[in-house]
Amino acid sequence: MKGSAKHVILAWATATCVIAVGPAEARPKKSGTQATELDPGGRGAISGIGIESRDIDAMADQVVRELMSRPDFIASAVPPRIVVDSAAFYNDSSQRIDRNMITDALRASLNRAANGRIRFISRETMALIQQERELKRTGVADVGTRGMTAGVAGLDFRLVGRMTSLDNRDGRSGLTQRRTQVLFELVDMETGEIPWTGQPYVILRASGDDVVYR
């Protein structure tokens, strides 16, 4: 009797421990900083003097709205062919940034807004395209459902851009100021003309806090 009572107490104690330990993992942590959902177009929880999330959205929006107001570009009988990628987007600024983030946001916004009024061409995937064309032409792959063309689509325009900056630092206070300028232009890939230059996206920010961009 004594032995079975011992077993009962042991089982009860084990169960209590399991119950006590089990739910503790599922309980939300009260200490520390919880992950928070933030508006990508807002200031965010951390802000410094460089290009930030809101700037990427804002500059893409600005370029799209400017280009959509150009009848010579979007209202032509044959939709112009354009490439928007990071190959011709240069970062000469002091900020480290993935250029693809800017050009991808721009291409996505522009493609959706154009709704067929502009034809977007990929040059980043040229090797893959040529490989597939080779497979079709050698009979390894069939022709697909869209037929074959003599060549890949030629470009009418390329969206080029450049990001530059001017930094100042006050040695005594440690305050840092940066002017960042992002400029987009449309280059005619046949003549080299620049039919459109966007309003430069310019920010001037100063801060004493040491925010690291990476």
């Binding site: 177009g41 809101r54 804002a58 929006d61 709205r65 400017e66 959509m68 107001s69 807004a113």
Partner: peptide, 25 residues
Amino acid sequence: TEPVSAWKTIFLPPRATSVYQERSI
């Protein structure tokens, strides 16, 4: 007809005017 435009920052000097412009898609 389209997503709302991005917030644009406008700097207003004291007792002076500034212009905001936006285009629709």
